[in-house]
Amino acid sequence: MPAPKIMTLADMAARVPDGASLALGGSFLHRGPFAFVRELIRQAKTGLEIIKQSPGYDLDILCRARCVTKARAGIVAMEGNFGLAPWYRRAVELQQIVLEEHACMTLTAGLRAAAFGVPFQPVGGVHGSDLPSLNHWASVTDPYGSGKEVWVIPAIQPDIAVIHVNEANELGDARVYGTYNWDRIMSRAAKQVFIVADTLASVQSFKDRPELTLIPSFMVQAVAVVPNGAWPGSCWPLYEVDYPAVEDYMDTTRDLGLHMACAPERLERVDA
């Protein structure tokens, strides 16, 4: 019998060593593994590297708690009417973290290289941007003679991809409703995949519609079931962004503990 993959959020976060590189699923305030991120803060992780095309709350709160030393990202913002991510901005400006600035698709090209098992991956566009010289990216001329110059991005292999999904089963199969953002390529690129699921669903329901499974169980090492775990973000169609809670979070004079105390996973921990 394989070891059971279902565990508490605390046990899942405990599997993350200091200094690990984490790809986080979702986009901005939508379907991010936010309960997991808060658990990293409770466990006082340090030296983490965050890999995500469009982080916001997750990277910001990890910067606020000083858990992060490096970020690889394409666009970082709270979005909506909230604008810039204040603690991330401060961390970069004070050089508390190292930023590797990407376009969303150059980061994805790096993930694709890892997923495809090749050392680098071509990406369309990027011509005329200062990003290649900033990041020391190379370009290659089409070896098949078109004369086109293509930028190539080195592989980016996260230690762990952490994906918040609508439904998972006890084996670790996972599915998402609505867009899966960048989660598919993250799950294929990373060395391990951790799933945080809003709902536990039956194995039979996955057998009934296997084509809806985004991430198959054999690729998954850990599963935690955390209802409302994407709070204060959305998890379509279960719940929307909790805007008042994000507003409270954005009050930089307000103690982070007050925000953490409202998190839904705290309730779960009483029974855990």
Binding site: L84, A103, V123
Partner: peptide
């Protein structure tokens, strides 16, 4: 000022 970054822009 650290701004958000270009997202899709460069591509």
């Amino acid at each position: 000022v650290r701004l958000p970054g270009g997202g899709g822009g460069a591509v």
